[in-house]
Deep mutational scan, measured.
Amino acid sequence: NQESVVAAVLIPINTALTVGMMTTRVVSPTGAPAEDIPRLISMQVNQVVPMGTTLMPDMVKGYAP
């Protein structure tokens, strides 16, 4: 099972992602793949992402898996 990126903390809208904001988990439906964490760092979210929420590609500005 592939791990997806999950918010480790509450991420406010327009916040640039840091490694400490993200964790990985096997979830369904799958979100952004765990191996993309290095690409996701410094990208901004376009909505509030509550802690424990799977990071879906459409939540991150300019990100395409």
Rank of each mutant, 00 (worst) to 15 (best):
I13F: 10
S28M: 13
V9K: 07
V6P: 00
V27Q: 03
D36V: 01
N1V: 14
V49S: 02
G20E: 15
L40K: 01
P29G: 04
I37R: 02
M43N: 04
T23P: 08
T23A: 10
S4I: 07
K61G: 06
V26P: 04
S4G: 00
P38R: 08
S28L: 11
M59V: 05
V6N: 02
V27R: 13
P12H: 09
T23N: 08
I41T: 02
M22W: 00
V49N: 01
T18V: 09
G20Q: 15
T18E: 13
Q47H: 02
P65V: 12
A32P: 03
N46R: 08
T15Q: 05
R39M: 12
T24R: 13
E3L: 13
I41R: 00
I11N: 00
V48T: 15
T18Y: 07
V26W: 11
I11E: 00
Q47I: 09
Q44W: 08
V6G: 00
L40I: 04
V5Y: 02
P29S: 04
T30Q: 15
L17C: 07
L40A: 02
Q44R: 14
T30R: 14
V6E: 00
Q2M: 12
V49M: 02
P57R: 05
K61E: 13
A32H: 04
V45S: 03
L10F: 12
A7P: 00
P29Q: 04
L10K: 08
D36L: 06
A7Q: 03
T53P: 03
P12M: 09
N14E: 05
V49A: 03
P33H: 06
T24V: 11
P38C: 12
I41M: 00
S42L: 08
T15Y: 02
A64P: 11
S42I: 08
I11S: 00
V27K: 02
T23L: 10
E3A: 13
E35N: 12
A64F: 14
Y63M: 06
P65N: 10
G20N: 13
M56F: 07
V9W: 00
G62S: 05
V49H: 00
T18P: 06
V45E: 01
A8V: 08
G20L: 12
I41N: 01
Q2H: 13
E35V: 12
